[in-house]
Measured scan of single mutants.
Amino acid sequence: EDYYQILGVPRNASQKEIKKAYYQLAKKYHPDTNKDDPKAKEKFSQLAEAYEVLSDEVKRKQYDA
């Protein structure tokens, strides 16, 4: 799945936009606030993985290549 789609940001998003999108979605899908939703944990880990790659310039360049 596309990391940009997961975070809901365009491919040319700035680091600030990526961070903002991640924090909004992380708050929304955090397992502690969605105890009754088994998919929230999965969504949250996808968000974390996408953010880890896109927030790191080197990893992001490799991902975009």
Rank of each mutant, 00 (worst) to 15 (best):
E17N: 06
D64R: 01
T33D: 08
F44Y: 15
Q62E: 15
D37Q: 06
A65I: 07
I18K: 00
Y22M: 04
R11D: 03
H30R: 06
K28I: 13
R11I: 06
I6M: 11
P10D: 12
Y51E: 01
E1H: 15
L54V: 02
V9E: 01
A26I: 13
A48M: 14
K19T: 15
I18E: 00
E42Q: 12
Q62S: 06
V9Q: 02
L7I: 05
L7A: 00
E57N: 06
K41E: 10
Y22T: 01
Y51L: 04
E1C: 12
K41N: 08
G8A: 07
V53F: 03
F44C: 06
D37R: 06
S45H: 12
A13K: 00
Q15C: 07
K59Y: 04
P31L: 05
V9S: 02
F44R: 08
L25Q: 11
K39P: 04
Y63L: 03
E17R: 08
N34S: 08
Y3G: 01
E17Y: 06
K20Y: 14
V53D: 01
H30S: 10
N12I: 06
L7P: 00
I6L: 12
A48W: 13
Q24I: 15
E49N: 07
T33V: 14
P38Y: 07
P10R: 09
K35H: 15
Y29W: 10
A48H: 15
K61W: 04
Y51M: 04
K35P: 14
A50I: 12
Q5A: 12
K28D: 10
Q15V: 12
D32S: 12
Y4Q: 00
K20H: 15
E17F: 06
E17G: 04
I18P: 00
K16G: 15
P38W: 08
K43V: 10
T33N: 13
Y23K: 15
R11N: 07
E1D: 11
P10V: 06
V53S: 03
D2Q: 04
I18Y: 01
L7E: 00
G8C: 06
A48G: 09
E42V: 11
K43N: 05
N34V: 10
K28R: 12
K19Y: 13
E1R: 11
K19E: 15
A26Y: 15
K61I: 05
A21W: 03
E42W: 11
D32K: 09
L25M: 10
R60V: 01
D32G: 12
A21S: 05
V53G: 02
D36W: 11
V53T: 14
S14N: 09
A40K: 06
E57L: 06
E42D: 10
E17H: 08
Q24T: 13
R60I: 01
V58L: 12
E17W: 07
Q46N: 09
K61M: 07
N12D: 13
K20S: 13
A13T: 05
K35W: 09
N34C: 09
K20M: 15
V53W: 05
S55Q: 06
L7Q: 00
Y63C: 03
H30G: 11
A13F: 02
S45E: 09
A65V: 09
I18W: 01
A48E: 14
G8Y: 03
A21H: 08
L25V: 04
Y4P: 00
D2C: 07
K27A: 15
E1S: 14
D36Y: 11
A65Y: 08
K20D: 15
K19I: 14
V58F: 11
A50H: 00
Q15K: 12
